[in-house]
Nucleic acid binder design. Structure first.
Lengths: 243, 243
DNA sequence: AAGTGGTCTAGACCACTAC
DNA sequence: TAGTGGTCTAGACCACTTA
């Protein structure tokens, strides 16, 4: 697909780690990798940095580069799907059939909050899209999204009933790769009870996100209310991940 | 403090952004910055990459580097404190007085799960530490932590009643900079009702974390149950943040 | 002392955007 | 066409760990 040196090396190393080719939990040193791959040490470092930022390896100065034992032993713990955009479309299906029911679809003027979050001017309009997501007819999420009409002037009901981000990618060739996410919990309200089948005392998980294109253009604000059993955000945090 | 070129530039650029020195939302190009700071372009790029990974700027190939409008306009939205380790010690006080009540402190053998998560052998022991955290006598979190005795052989009640991670840093000079975090929501149980003052129907937020030193040594597994009003994890996600 | 990862440089060339 | 950020190289030197 792509043809970047550091990315190829990264992919290859990941494969070799998963295949247990480094049984002593230790990777070859950077200079050796540089030579064996026939690339500069800088490119090797870059590949290793990506893996380190994902928590797959640890680099120990003066000592070497080591595989995170959790990555091999216990992939059920080490799942940072949450480290994706926290996005609707990326909920794991696990063989279940995902479905979308469109609850609301209209165009409204952006209020002040939306103007700020989506970099809009007073008077700009947004699509308001409310959807219910299910797995095998079992609802798990109410999603209310707002998309500036100017970033998708010809959005239709049919599109909105499916993956919106795929639509961006397919039509405009632009992919949504960045987001602000805010994760909270709340008691459920009447609508939650009705749509998500929750009991009074059962909570909802809230995920609020602003999604951006690569170039910083915001394309959606989304408020997601999840059946609490489905709120599970996993992530690897690396404070030195600043490189 | 530190004296890294890219870090100094990063800090300076951040300051200049916050001081509105780039009123047109656009930073000087990399080659200019390289010259004006008297460093290589690589170092400038590195500094910019850090800021981009934090969501403070967006880089647009062929066009320039731009400030994220949300960063200046609305810092109340743009707060990714959650992007810290998700750590206990980092909860913002906001002028409130944080307190810790030690509920339990003992040494027990690590069960299988802890052995896996903390890279321990059968028969290894861990401290089991249960604490209640409050702001101005208002409880908001029950925290149950497990720390291998071998990473802190002389842990005392006094230490445990304060910041454990600061203790690591002060005594061993090692800082906790990485973590796996898992965030969920659950209905509250009896203990939550009692200790956190929750009503039956009110939920708790759960944050489970494994914390590591720089070199990959795991130092703590922590299960945190938060009053739902205090669960608020904010983060900037960048799928291209792999550099 | 030897080996490892970390930082930084100077420069070449490529890919994309704007005009 | 000019200007921007992206990738990659080859090499120097530093900081730390291990023996």
């Amino acid at each position: 697909m792509v043809d970047l040196v550091y990315r190829n090396i990264m992919t290859d190393l990941k494969r070799r780690i998963e295949n247990n080719e480094f049984d002593n939990k230790r990777l070859p040193d950077e200079r050796s990798l540089s030579e064996s791959y026939g690339v500069s040490r800088s490119s090797v470092k870059r590949a290793l940095n990506v893996l380190a930022n994902q928590g797959i390896i640890f680099k120990k100065r003066g000592s070497g580069t080591f595989i995170n034992p959790l990555y091999q032993k216990n992939e059920s713990i080490f799942q940072y799907e949450g480290s994706n955009l926290g996005i609707t479309d990326s909920f794991k299906s696990d063989g279940q059939v995902p479905q979308i029911k469109l609850l609301d679809f209209q165009v409204i003027p952006a209020n002040e909050e939306l103007q700020t979050e989506l970099f809009l001017n007073p008077g700009d309009f947004v699509y308001q899209i409310k959807r219910l997501r299910t797995f095998d007819d079992h609802p798990f999420m109410i999603e209310q999204g707002y998309i500036p009409i100017k970033v998708a002037p010809e959005l239709t009901k049919a599109v909105v009933a499916e993956s919106i981000f795929n639509y961006f990618e397919d039509t405009a060739g632009k992919s949504v790769t960045k987001s602000f996410m805010s994760i909270k919990a709340e008691p459920s309200n009447d609508e939650d009870h009705e749509l998500l089948g929750l009991k009074d005392f059962e909570p909802v998980g809230m995920m609020e996100g602003i999604f951006f294109l690569d170039d910083g253009t915001p394309v959606e604000v989304s408020n997601m209310r999840l059946h609490y059993k489905y709120l599970n955000y996993n992530t690897f945090v690396n404070l030195d991940g600043e490189m």
